[in-house]
Design a protein around this nucleic acid. Structure first.
Lengths: 341, 341
DNA sequence: CTGAAAGCGCTAACAC
DNA sequence: GTGTTAGCGCTTTCAG
C-alpha cells in the first residue's frame, strides 16, 4: 500500500524495443522519430502506466518547474485570494507552487527560504514579508517578485496596490464631508500600512491640520485579533465623541474598521451619524458587517496577474535583460453604509 | 541575476580535501567520521555557501519529503484554517507541502493529481473533493488521508467532523425550542453535507414529522455566492412566515445561514423572533454577522492534527501494517444571537 | 574512520 | 530516424 509507481523510462524503452533516448524524445516531442515508433511507445506508456519523474528531469535540466509563494497568513482573505490566483496562473503555465505560511515570523521565513532553495524553486513570490526580509532571501539570486514591499535596492520587481493614493482618497473623503479626521491602525508595520499612514498625514498637512500625531491611534495588537475587545480603542472612541463633532475614522484595514464599528456599537455610538468609518482592502467582512463598511478596495486579481506576469517573464528570459519594475495597481473607493452620505 | 547557487557536494569535497562520501556522511550525520574532518567540512560548507540539492536526494532515495494537499477553495476560511495547520505540522516534521486549489473541478483534480505524482510526493491530504474523486487518485498507492469523504473502500484513512451528530444537535435544538423545523442547503453534494441532511431527516422522522421533503430547500448555487440575492430563498422564507409559527431553520453552513439572515432582514422578518437560524462550521462570519449566528463549530485544529498524525504515521511506517481508520472529530454547539433563547 | 564506484531517472551531445 | 554515452547531485554498498 505504500509503494510508488516505479515504471521508469528504461522499462518503457525495453518493453517497446527502442532506446531510452527515443522514448525521451517522444515524451518531450523533441528531435525526430517515426510515427510508427511513436505510436508503439505511447502504447506501452499507457500499458505500463508510466509517469515521468519530474525529480529526475529537474535534476538533469536544473529547472524544477516549481515556485515558492511566501505569505504572512493564508487564512487572511486578502492574502488567500492573491495566493489562489497566483497559484492558478502559475499552474496553467506549468509551474507548481509551494505555499509557505510565515506568520510574519523571521525564523519561519528563514526556514522556508532554506527549504525552497533546497527544492531548487525556479522563482519566488513574496507577499508582504516582515520588515527585515532583506536579510533572509537576499543572498540568493533566483527570480523574485515582491507583493507589497518597500523598494530596498533598484534591482527588484515589486507589485503593490497604490496604497498611498488609497490613503489619500480615504482621507480626502473624510475631509470633504467636513468630518473630524482620525486614523486607527495596528502595530504591524508593513510598507502597505506605512504608505496609507503617510498619505493620511500628508493630506492633513495640506489642510493645515497640525495635531496630527494625536489623531492617530496605534493599537497594540495585530488585526487578526479583530474580534477581541480593546480598552484603548474604547477610550479613544469616547474621547473622539466627547469633541462633539462628527468624526471620520480611517481604519487601516477592514478588520480594524470592523473593530471600530463593533466597539462603537458597544458604546452606543452611532455609525455613521456620530462617527463615519472607512476601511481598506475590500474583504467580504466589509460586506457582511452591519453597517456595511465603506472601504478602499484592492484589486487582488490584478495584483496576482501582474506578479505572475513579471515572474514568468523573468523565469523564462535567459537572464539579465529583465529590467526592474515597480508596479502600482489602482484601488477603488466603494461607498457603503458606514459613512455619512 | 538569474542563476542558482551551484555549489555541489563535489565542490565541498574537493575544497576540504576529503571524498564525496565523507561529506555526505557529515551532512546527514550517518556512519562515522572524526571530529576533525567534521569541523573542516562544516567550515567549507559555510565558506562556499553550499546548500543540499533536495532534488538529487529525492531522486536517489526515492523520497521527496513533499506532500500534496488538495483543497476545494483556499479562500474559504474553514478550508484555509485546516490547510494552514496541516502545512505547519508537516513542515515541522520535515515535509514541504504543495497546495492545490481544485475548485471542486474534476479536471483540475486530475491535472493536479498528475503533477503531484510526477513530483513524487510522499503523501496526500485530500480535503472534501468532488464526488467522483475515487477515479482520479485511486490508481496510485501513496499514503493518503482524506478529510471529509465517504468511505468508499475499507482501506482508507478518513478524518472528518462528526457531521451527523452535529446535524442531530442542530435539529434537536430547533425541536426542543418548539420551532417549526426547516433545512436550507446548496447543491454541493459533499459527504459532510449529506451527513448533516441525513441527521436532520432522521430526527424529524423520530418526531413523527412526515412532510420532510417539503421542509428542505436546496438552493441552486454554491455557498461561495452567499452575498447574492436568491429569489427562491426569499419566497421560501415568505412561505415559512405565512405559517404563523416560529420557525427554526438549519442552514447547512454558516454562509447559508448568513444568506438566510440577510434575506430575512430584507423581507422584514425578525431574526430570531420569527425565525431562528442555526449554522454549521464556526466561521468568523458567524461572529461578524448581526445578529451573530448560533452554529455548530468544527474543530479545525483537531482535524488537521489527526490528519497529519495519520499521514505521518503512514509515510514513516515501512509499509502495510497501518490499519485503515475513520476518525470522527467532535463538534460543538455555540449559541449566539440568531436563535431564540 | 575514509574512499571508490555504482546508480536513482532523465536529457543532450554526438555518433551512425 | 535511432542508439550510445556521459553526467546532473546525491546516497550507499563494499573495500580498505
Amino acid at each position: 500500500m505504500n509503494k510508488k509507481n516505479n515504471v521508469s523510462i528504461k522499462d518503457v524503452a525495453k518493453a517497446s524495443g527502442v532506446s531510452i533516448t527515443t522514448v525521451s524524445r517522444i515524451i518531450n516531442n523533441t528531435g525526430r522519430f517515426s510515427k510508427v515508433t511513436q505510436k508503439k511507445v505511447i502504447q506501452t506508456i499507457n500499458d505500463l502506466g508510466y509517469e515521468q519523474n519530474k525529480l529526475a528531469v529537474s535534476l538533469r535540466s536544473n529547472k524544477s518547474n516549481t515556485v515558492g509563494i511566501m505569505v504572512p497568513d493564508i487564512t487572511n482573505e486578502f492574502y488567500s485570494a492573491i495566493v489562489k490566483k497566483c497559484e492558478q496562473l502559475l499552474f496553467s503555465n506549468g509551474y507548481s507552487s509551494i505555499i509557505c505560511n510565515t506568520e510574519r515570523s523571521s525564523e519561519r521565513e528563514a526556514a522556508y527560504s532554506q527549504v525552497l532553495m533546497e527544492h531548487r524553486v525556479d522563482g519566488l513570490i513574496i507577499i508582504s514579508s516582515a520588515i527585515d526580509d532583506s536579510k533572509v532571501i537576499k543572498t540568493t539570486t533566483i527570480p523574485t517578485v515582491y507583493i507589497d514591499r518597500d523598494p530596498h535596492s533598484h534591482n527588484e520587481l515589486i507589485v503593490s496596490s497604490d496604497h498611498y493614493t488609497g490613503g489619500e482618497i480615504a482621507t480626502k473623503f473624510i475631509l470633504n464631508h467636513q468630518l473630524n479626521p482620525f486614523l486607527i491602525m495596528t502595530k504591524t508595520k508593513t510598507s502597505s500600512t506605512m504608505e496609507r499612514v503617510r498619505a493620511f498625514k500628508d493630506v492633513l498637512k495640506e489642510h493645515q491640520i497640525t495635531d496630527i500625531e494625536s489623531r492617530i491611534l496605534s493599537l497594540d495588537l495585530t488585526s487578526d485579533k479583530f474580534l477581541e475587545t480593546v480598552p484603548s480603542l474604547d477610550s479613544y472612541l469616547q474621547k473622539i465623541v466627547s469633541l462633539k463633532k462628527p468624526a471620520g475614522i480611517f481604519g487601516i484595514n477592514d478588520n480594524v474598521a470592523y473593530m471600530i464599528i463593533r466597539a462603537a456599537q458597544r458604546l452606543n455610538i452611532n455609525v455613521p451619524k456620530t462617527i463615519s468609518v472607512i476601511g481598506f482592502d475590500g474583504n467580504s467582512f466589509s460586506e457582511i458587517s452591519a453597517p456595511k463598511i465603506t472601504t478602499i478596495v484592492q484589486n487582488t486579481t490584478k495584483l496576482a496577474q501582474e506578479s505572475c506576469r513579471l515572474l514568468l517573464q523573468q523565469m523564462t528570459t535567459q537572464d539579465k535583460d529583465v529590467s526592474p519594475a515597480i508596479i502600482k495597481v489602482p484601488v477603488q473607493l466603494v461607498i457603503k453604509e458606514s459613512t455619512v452620505h
